[in-house]
């Protein structure tokens, strides 16, 4: 298994996440897409660390653990936002929520 394989998987994962975020109308599914893209980035970190010049240092692992922790917090904030949006608009369909229109 070489680095390219990991990168391809990661790129696929990112593409799946981006596609979900762009095409889904439900805010929760969009959030899930965002999480997928985030995980694709984490996979990139691990791959570049493992095949990088200094695999003996734990920089890659630490970075990803931070990233996952922040992703957890972000998911909490994202869900809280979705609940607030739902309370306000009685919907979570993003095409109905267009009050940012200038």
């Amino acid at each position: 298994m070489s680095l390219q394989h990991y990168l391809i998987v990661s790129a696929l994962l990112f593409a799946v996440g981006l596609g979900g975020a762009l095409t889904r109308r439900n805010a929760i599914l969009v959030l899930i897409g965002v999480e997928l893209m985030l995980n694709a980035a984490n996979l990139n970190f691990i791959a570049f660390w493992r095949y990088g010049p200094n695999p003996e240092l734990f920089t890659g692992i630490i970075f990803v653990i931070f990233s996952i922790a922040i992703a957890a917090a972000e998911a909490a904030v994202g869900l809280a936002l979705i609940i607030a949006v739902y309370r306000h608009y009685r919907t979570v369909r993003l095409d109905r929520i267009d009050s940012l229109k200038g």
Partner: peptide, 16 residues
């Protein structure tokens, strides 16, 4: 104003 229609996903598409 056509571009700025308030749909978050459209903004996201442009970003993509």
């Amino acid at each position: 104003s056509f571009w700025q229609n308030g749909q978050v996903q459209r903004y996201l598409r442009f970003i993509g």
